[in-house]
Amino acid sequence: MSIVGIFCLTIFGIVSFIGILGNGFILVVNGHQWLQNRKMIPSDFLLTSLSTSRFIMQLGLLINSSLYLIVNIKVPLFLYDVTFFFWIFFNMTSHWCATWLSVFYCMKVTNFANPLFLWLKAKINMLVPRLLGLSIAIFTVSCLPLLVDYFGYIKWCNLTETLPKNASQRKVCGKAPIVFLPIQFSFYVLNLGLSTIAIILLLVSLWRHTRNLKKSGVGVKDLNTQVHIKVMTFLLFWFFFYFVDFIAVIVYAIINSTEGDITTVQGLLIGIWMSAFPSAHSIILILTNPNLKEMCIRLMKEMYAHIISIGHSTS
């Protein structure tokens, strides 16, 4: 492997490790609290579902990339595409979890006098888990015709990856990224639309709230304003990283549709691009959640104290 490849491999390993560690931390903390209380509030349910899907997704991406790019194990293309199907499922599941989490925070923070909005605000705790399940179910059902279409092409490929006539192996057997690109694009746009609406509602609510505060002469830095800004920051980070991840999926699909295999450096760069979004977003989730932030600081202090005690005992 070249120096560039080793550098990309190092970055990919660090980014993946951060994502797996961050999402694993959220999963363990919320899971432990659920075991203690035997109940979970909607925001923690969405966070746990989000971290679980991302943990599985990133771990699978790391293992698949290690086998294919580092160990250089040549698996049949249809098996590679099967792993790609699972990656798509957990990737879209994580996106829906994050989208409904954004909508949940928006509904809890904003205030409007509209009757429909007030009804949704009162029912949001009950609606969010159902909407998440419905979204995942709709995405899964939408993918079924594409799966049938894809496996119609699989009959032309056997385990030795031989093809009839002079057909292109990449076009016939490795077409999963292209087949699923339209449905991915559709759901990406839908998620971006919901997130955009949540951001607009927050901006309008914040503007109206600060205007009322100025009129009353109270000031503009009360607790409600701080909560608005905190949720707004969370949503803007989510929107940015989500857009970057969307571009990465498109690039990945385009490269897979071309003739020939992906080089090691290309594969690692794509892996870094795809891992950066869930890794960075998991850190933001921890830093913006008071409970997770407190647990993280406490854990780091305990680890530091443990390291210091080991140093003193060995000296």
Rank of each mutant, 00 (worst) to 15 (best):
V103A: 00
N111T: 11
Q184M: 14
S195H: 00
L147P: 10
K121L: 07
T196I: 10
Q169D: 04
S195V: 13
N125M: 05
K171D: 04
K123I: 03
K155L: 10
L192Q: 10
L120N: 01
L163K: 04
F187P: 08
W119Y: 13
V109S: 00
A122S: 09
L132N: 00
C143W: 01
I138V: 15
K171G: 03
I183D: 00
W207E: 11
L144F: 12
A198M: 05
P129G: 00
R170N: 07
N158F: 10
F151T: 15
G133P: 04
W119L: 13
R170Q: 15
K155I: 12
S195D: 01
Q184V: 11
I199T: 05
P164M: 03
K175D: 12
Q169A: 08
L144Y: 07
L203G: 02
L127C: 01
C173H: 02
N166G: 11
T140H: 04
R130W: 07
D149K: 14
N191F: 06
L201E: 02
S186F: 14
T162L: 15
K175T: 15
R170G: 04
P182L: 07
V128C: 01
C143K: 03
I183G: 02
F180V: 13
L203H: 05
P182I: 12
V172S: 00
N125T: 07
A137D: 03
C173F: 05
L181N: 06
F104Y: 15
F187M: 11
N125G: 02
K123W: 05
L202S: 00
R208Q: 14
F117D: 04
N166R: 08
I124T: 04
M126P: 02
S142T: 13
S168T: 02
C157F: 08
L118Y: 02
I200K: 05
I138E: 03
M107C: 11
V103Q: 01
N114A: 04
